[in-house]
Design a protein around this nucleic acid. Structure first.
Length: 454
RNA sequence: GUGGUUGUAGCUCAGUUGGUUAGAGCACUGGAUUGUGGUUCCAGGGGUCGUGGGUUCAAGUCCCAUCUACCACCCCA
């Protein structure tokens, strides 16, 4: 072996088998998006860093891949910044572009930039890879595909309901059992207000979000570390320990935080969504989760997260409503709501549960064996007739030993092998071998075409 | 970014308290079978033991560093 070449940490190659399975997922997602009236767009892999920085919080800025400037990238660099390890300034001086971190922020940029071409409410989907400089782990990659659907320019909660239906449709088609968790950013705000700690909103919600993982006591411990006093923490108790079904939980929430503007609005919104959702015939379980706190950085209303029931892999879909994402790009008061499907994690779920259909890899129907120069030239005409009839056919390019050609057909899972040697050329009656049963039959081109067309 | 585990043939792995020429299965190539794959039998090729340094008469094996993959945290799809 010449040398060991590898791919960067957290990235992957995809074999033809894997691509067939991936395309199975993508087409399930894409066809559903289309069915609901969404149109596709694409945006570049790289954006200006000014577009990306500051949109995902401090953590997000760290996880952005930055692209070194072309040419003399040192020309804007101040050597003092290097000495002082002023990483922010050094980065800004040598890199002005970065790889996109998600599809939502580039979409917001797109909307603002193409405002006058867009009919609102704008329903778009986007299926493209994103990059994060995170440390790879199970179900976590540095390059992965997101499949986004968003509606922008409509405040109606019917959009939320539609997204829930889309989620249910897609996972139903893929045979994955899921729980759709719902919350509302305003409920979180209400909680923070009712315990008189609105400025601690982020600390409170990210701590509460971990209750399933580490238990109530650890959450309280983390909150103490973040500087909350015992009284405040005790006030959280009733919120943390909500029980019962969705309706009773919502009613409890209303009592607890209904006195705040945000809280009452948030509960009302969620109640409305639940009302509409419960009368639908959904397969997925929809669950109100008052501690769910994803995407806190730009979400303002509904928060959605989807987890697989039978595999522990983190969320496979997530999203929410953002009232002012385009505001950062100079277009205020445009509300949007959207979700993102993690195709790579869905792949892992399907793989782990063995849920991929057998025949996702569409193999070649028939391989024509190459017996030599004359026979190959003759076979070319037969090949053409087969392909014209819609049969997936290929002619082995080299006249190597039949054993090798048969083995190739076997490995590629080709259904039939067509043998056209000297005898067959002379008689016009060809030999067709069924690779599954091993049976051989003889027939004219018309008879053979008939076999494939049935 | 913090902490832990790991690395031996293309792949999955064995390799004893440090000791002679580092093994197996699968895969690959050739043959048994000159027009027949998937089964069987025979033969063959393939390794700077992740990389760099150190300890030792002697290192795949012990020590340090570094890289990779995996796991947990942070965060997230």
């Amino acid at each position: 072996m010449a040398q060991k070449y590898t791919i960067p940490k957290g990235t992957r190659d995809f074999s033809p088998e894997e691509m067939a399975r991936r395309n199975y997922i993508f087409s399930a997602i894409q066809s559903t998006f289309k069915k609901y009236g969404y149109f596709p767009i694409e945006t570049p892999a790289m954006e200006n860093l000014s577009t990306l920085m500051g949109k995902y919080g401090e953590e997000g800025d760290r996880l952005l891949f930055k692209i070194l400037n072309s040419g003399d990238f040192l020309k804007n660099l101040d050597s003092k910044d290097i000495e002082n390890k002023n990483l922010g300034k050094v980065t800004a001086a040598i890199a002005e572009k970065g790889l996109r971190y998600d599809l939502t922020v580039p979409f917001a940029r797109y909307v603002v930039q193409h405002l006058n071409e867009i009919a609102f409410p704008f329903k778009r989907y986007q299926i493209q890879p994103v990059w994060r400089a995170d440390r790879p782990q199970k179900g976590r990659y540095r390059e992965f595909y997101q499949c986004d659907v968003d509606v922008i320019g409509s405040r109606s909660l019917l959009n939320e309901v539609e997204l829930i239906r889309i989620i249910d449709d897609i996972f139903k088609e893929l045979s994955i059992n899921v729980v759709i968790k719902l919350n509302n950013r305003k409920i979180l705000t209400g909680i923070a207000e009712i315990i008189n700690a609105p400025e601690k909103l982020t600390d409170i919600t990210t701590a509460m979000d971990k209750i399933d993982k580490m238990g109530v006591e650890k959450v309280y411990e983390e909150l103490r570390q973040k500087g909350l006093d015992e009284d405040t923490i005790n006030m959280l108790e009733p919120v943390m320990n909500l029980s019962g079904n969705n309706t009773s939980r919502l009613n409890c929430l209303k009592e607890l935080i209904g006195s705040t503007d945000a809280g009452s609005q948030g509960v009302q919104e969620l109640q409305y969504i639940m009302e509409l959702t419960t009368q639908l015939n959904l397969k997925a379980e929809v669950k109100v989760d008052q501690v769910l706190a994803r995407g806190l950085n730009y979400y303002t209303g509904t928060i959605i997260e989807v987890v697989a029931q039978d595999v522990q892999i983190g969320s496979i879909c997530g999203g929410g409503r953002y009232d002012n994402l385009t505001g950062i790009f100079g277009l205020p008061d445009v509300s949007g709501v959207g979700i993102s499907f993690g195709a790579d994690r869905i792949y892992d779920v399907l793989h782990e549960l063995n849920l991929f259909p057998e025949e996702v890899l569409s193999a070649t129907d028939v391989l024509l064996v190459n017996f030599g120069e004359k026979e190959a030239a003759y076979s070319l005409g037969i090949l053409e007739q087969l392909q014209l009839a819609g049969v997936k056919a290929e002619l082995y390019p080299d006249s190597v030993k039949m054993k090798k050609q048969m083995k190739y057909a076997h490995q590629k899972k080709v259904g039939y092998v067509l043998l056209i040697g000297e005898d067959e050329m002379n008689t016009g009656i060809y030999t067709l071998k069924n690779m599954k049963t091993g049976e051989q039959s003889k027939g004219t081109i018309v008879e053979i075409l008939a076999i494939f067309n049935t």
